[in-house]
Write a protein that binds this DNA or RNA. Structure first.
Lengths: 225, 225
DNA sequence: CTTCTCAAAATTGAATACAATCGATTGTTT
DNA sequence: AAACAATCGATTGTATTCAATTTTGAGAAG
């Protein structure tokens, strides 16, 4: 009667590789040599390839034909695009979540942020954890079977963090609380709107950076002609 | 100097399988026996598996561990969810497209629908073709490198058509024209809003059907207790 | 006659072996 | 000495083979 232990190797390898990428043990731009990794993980190349293809779908790695597999390296332009995606997808999740959530779940969300209310000094690492839990929870409740498959959305916070993105907790805390109230009121449209506004802050931050970089590129043209 | 001829077998098999599914030669719910198909297409199971995994990511097929691969069969609930996804994703594409399109491109879009303006009787098959071209074009212009990978959106019109979804051309024609004007004016937010409203019609149509089915299910309980 | 069990066949999942292509290094020529 | 070409090595892409599991069918028992 044991129906567990059934997951295939590809899935396991997928999880391991994803963890390695998250931990930056595999760095962006680095080539993933199939033979080496398969030996390291103790499996053959077949399930490894399956895992790599799954990761490719999430845009965490990149296949270049006849060249190899590389850890995807995002430039600012792409990152902005990913944030635009996140805005609409997670906005949809918030909308659906608002329509389905019960009071127990909203209280659960509220509880995440109560430690930070009225604090003059906010512990950033603790807050970051609460932030991620919040977004994960909303996605979990608001995603049906289809949206759940779009794991790209799940990766975005990690990618963003890797690039050192920061929006001050003081700003986002208010966003979160307002959002929870809207969901508590079952106001789906407002929840979507607020989530999009909330997430747009990160995108705008990135856009500013892009402008800066472009400006700097004009000021300091590369040495040789 | 020929850099073509480089696409891998997996891609080719992917295209072939997708065509088969579109043509309903592989019917929803049907099992895809790997050995049989690989023989039929004259390739081994390795690139076939790669293709199947790509299709799985688009939710056109479904892997059931230790059972096999099946052509995905959508129920109304899932289809509605997919339409919700389409609303936000294609809405985003419209927004981005509005910001980038030039007059040549907007005229191109307008030209698609001029044959149908002021027609009392609309040729539905011809209109359907124009409709699909329109949405494809918007996606093409408005999708960056990331959104382009979300091929699910491309499949939706086909899936919907397979389920016999119909929104009268008289209604959608006006939507299309209004949308083109918004994009022509570079009004990104309005373009997004209009696209979402336009696409929501299909979703609402489906929701009605779902309610009907549920009502019928209550009226006629299945024979035996 | 129906149902349960056991066995065999078929199909998926994984590994290994083979072929083709790309890059690097070395040798030759200008 | 520098640049181009060719060969060698390494790595990916594909096929074939092997093992494990599931399903189906047949036979026996109730």
């Amino acid at each position: 009667m044991k129906r567990i232990e059934q997951q295939d190797l590809g899935q396991l390898v997928y999880d391991m590789l994803k963890a390695l990428i998250y931990k930056k043990e595999l760095k962006p731009g680095e080539q993933i040599r199939q033979e080496e990794v398969s030996k390291r993980l103790g499996v053959s190349r077949t399930p490894l390839l399956k895992a790599l293809q799954m990761l490719e779908h999430e845009s965490l790695v990149e296949f270049i034909p006849r060249r190899g597999v590389f850890v995807k390296k995002y430039d600012l332009q792409e990152l902005i695009e990913i944030f635009e995606l996140r805005e609409v997808l997670e906005g949809l999740a918030a909308k659906r979540a608002a329509a389905r959530m019960d009071s127990r779940q909203t209280n659960q969300l509220r509880a995440l942020f109560t430690p930070f209310i009225d604090q003059t000094e906010i512990d950033c690492t603790a807050y970051e954890k609460a932030d991620q839990s919040f977004h994960r929870k909303v996605l979990e409740i608001g995603s049906g079977s289809v949206l759940k498959r779009y794991r790209v959305v799940q990766n975005i916070p990690i990618i963003a963090y890797q690039m050192g993105l920061h929006v001050p907790p003081e700003v986002t805390l208010a966003d979160h609380l307002e959002l929870i109230e809207a969901m508590s009121d079952q106001d789906a449209d407002k929840a979507e709107q607020l989530m999009r506004k909330h997430l747009s802050r990160g995108r705008i931050e990135l856009s500013k950076r892009l402008e800066q970089e472009e400006a700097e590129a004009l000021e300091e043209p590369v040495s040789a002609t």
